[in-house]
């Protein structure tokens, strides 16, 4: 935490501390920041390096923060990267990149919590600034958006039961109530829908 505290206080100083190059954490900060600043100047290759590096760190950060929602990590990661990209003009040169990125990641994470109101996840503390660049997770995973696209092709009577029962984890009775159909219709919908999905995936659609 001593490191993260020092990162915090440097947010208010006019010059970026260069005496911590030996520090593992600050080395990432300096490396990513270098790529980012060049990227802001129009260097697409450096910008790509920055996004790749940031993506790995963010993935590890989000996986730690969302132990019960690993499937959402890739979605939130992409959303956060997009937010970083869209807000890149708001970065101040005299500010540590860690503090800037962390504030954005936290904002997007809170947004996700609000939208999903996962109460158990809200108990996770996300006050520790500096931990963002501690781990790196380069293993990419597919976002759930692809499933969403496949599901869109299904008719509602198949799609909604799958969304409620298989993705959101509701009971058959709850799903039946939400869809306004009988429980057996929900079961049939899940069954036929999954079958249709499997056929689509095999067919390479």
């Amino acid at each position: 935490m001593a490191i993260s505290l020092s990162m915090d206080s440097s947010a208010t100083t006019a010059t970026f501390p260069t005496d911590r190059v030996t520090d593992g954490l600050s080395a990432t900060e300096i490396e990513l920041r270098g790529c980012f600043v060049l990227g802001l100047g129009g260097n697409a290759a450096q910008y790509r390096l920055f996004l790749d590096g940031l993506g790995s760190h963010l993935r590890a950060y989000l996986r730690r923060r969302l132990p019960r929602a690993q499937a959402d990590v890739e979605d939130i990661l992409q959303e956060t990267l997009l937010a970083v990209h869209n807000a890149r003009h708001t970065y101040r040169d005299d500010q540590p990149l860690t503090a800037w990125v962390h504030a954005i990641a936290r904002y997007k994470l809170m947004d996700f919590f609000r939208a999903h109101s996962r109460r158990e996840a809200l108990h996770e503390p996300f006050e520790d600034d500096g931990s963002l660049f501690v781990d790196s997770d380069v293993e990419p995973a597919d976002a759930r958006r692809d499933v969403g696209r496949l599901l869109e092709a299904l008719p509602d009577r198949h799609r909604l039961p799958i969304v409620f029962v298989k993705l959101q984890g509701l009971s058959v009775a709850e799903a039946a109530q939400r869809c306004g159909i009988s429980e057996s219709a929900v079961k049939v919908g899940v069954h036929r829908g999954l079958k249709a999905l499997a056929a689509r995936i095999r067919g390479g659609v």
């Binding site: 990227g39 802001l40 910008y47 996004l51 993506g55 993935r59 990661l77 997009l82 990209h85 976002a143």
Partner: peptide, 23 residues
């Protein structure tokens, strides 16, 4: 969409930024 492709897409949008625009 894979995150790698997504990053590629973002990086391809010429990211030159006018730093004085906010002011």
């Amino acid at each position: 969409m894979k995150t790698n492709d997504f990053i590629g897409m973002l990086a391809n949008q010429t990211p030159s930024v006018d730093r004085r625009a906010p002011a």
